[in-house]
């Protein structure tokens, strides 16, 4: 029986999530016994046409040709998986603000440049997506878990608990209790609270947990900091979510 074919493609992003796959090293070779990566621009010369069993999409498409490529992979693949926050949430490219964009176009490309780019959106804005592997970057343990589930024929599953579980296990006191902003309670776990353990806030790169109580968190954040800061926290990764547009933005 031939092994399932997998493609890994990338759009606008830093390629860090693909590096995480490469960094699995021997573990990747183990996993690769169960499937064939037949198209992976960053890593190999081998490039086969579809159909594919699955395509992992890293980054967000911001030009018409990138959108076409994404649609091509959708047509050719049984499953499409978002790889990392740029794909799942528009991530870092999603932070860009339109006004500044105009200014920088002129500075970088000159006055005659005709912009082609569109606003970064999560890939599910363009095609149907079967599962999102969250994270900026994605975690290695999480990747292994994902591949194992995929190869076992299971539906990959989201962690329906907050970062707070992993944060407590790491022995961190609570940032919010210490009156420092944090999006951990509304964010899906899987990162082992690496940012909070390292002294930073959680900015929600794993996306929102099921049924997050965003209004309650906003009340807490309003007591800790100002609206501008709250906007900064939420727009790092979550500005393209429906919840941000409907609940957070009207309150800023």
């Amino acid at each position: 029986m031939s092994k399932p074919k997998i493609a890994i493609c990338d759009f606008t992003d830093c390629e860090g999530c693909q590096v995480q796959i490469i960094s699995l090293r021997e573990k990747l070779l183990d996993l690769e016994k169960h499937f064939d990566i037949v198209d992976w621009r960053l890593v190999q010369a081998k490039k086969e046409k579809g159909p594919y069993f699955a395509t992992l999409v890293e980054g967000t498409p911001i030009t018409p040709s990138e959108i076409e490529t994404l649609k091509y992979f959708r047509e050719q693949s049984k499953y499409i998986f978002g790889l990392g926050s740029c794909a799942s949430l528009a991530g870092i490219p999603g932070i860009i603000s339109k006004e500044n964009r105009e200014k920088w176009y002129k500075i970088i490309y000159g006055a005659g440049y005709k912009p082609q780019g569109i606003d970064a959106l999560p890939i599910q804005a363009f095609v149907k997506v079967d599962f999102l592997i969250h994270g900026c970057p994605v975690g290695q343990e999480q990747l292994v878990r994902f591949f194992e589930e995929l190869m076992a024929g299971q539906t990959p599953s989201y962690r329906n608990y907050s970062v707070c579980f992993e944060c407590k296990v790491e022995g961190n006191p609570c940032r919010l209790v210490e009156k420092k902003p944090c999006l951990g309670p509304i964010t899906q776990a899987g990162c082992k609270a690496v940012c909070v353990s390292g002294g930073s806030a959680c900015y929600g790169c794993f996306g929102l947990r099921t049924e997050p109580n965003i209004r309650a968190l906003l009340t807490i954040l309003n007591n800790i900091t100002d609206k501008k800061e709250i906007e900064r926290y939420f727009t790092m990764f979550l500005s393209r979510t429906e919840e941000y547009q409907k609940i957070v933005k009207p309150n800023l």
Partner: peptide
């Protein structure tokens, strides 16, 4: 219900909360 974040911290830090979930994998 309007205040609670539902994050679960109270149960994790409680010395007498003992509910768990089970996951079979690999």
């Amino acid at each position: 219900k309007d205040i609670c974040l539902g994050c679960g911290i109270c149960t994790y830090v409680c010395p007498l909360c003992y509910c768990f979930s089970v996951e079979d994998r690999n």
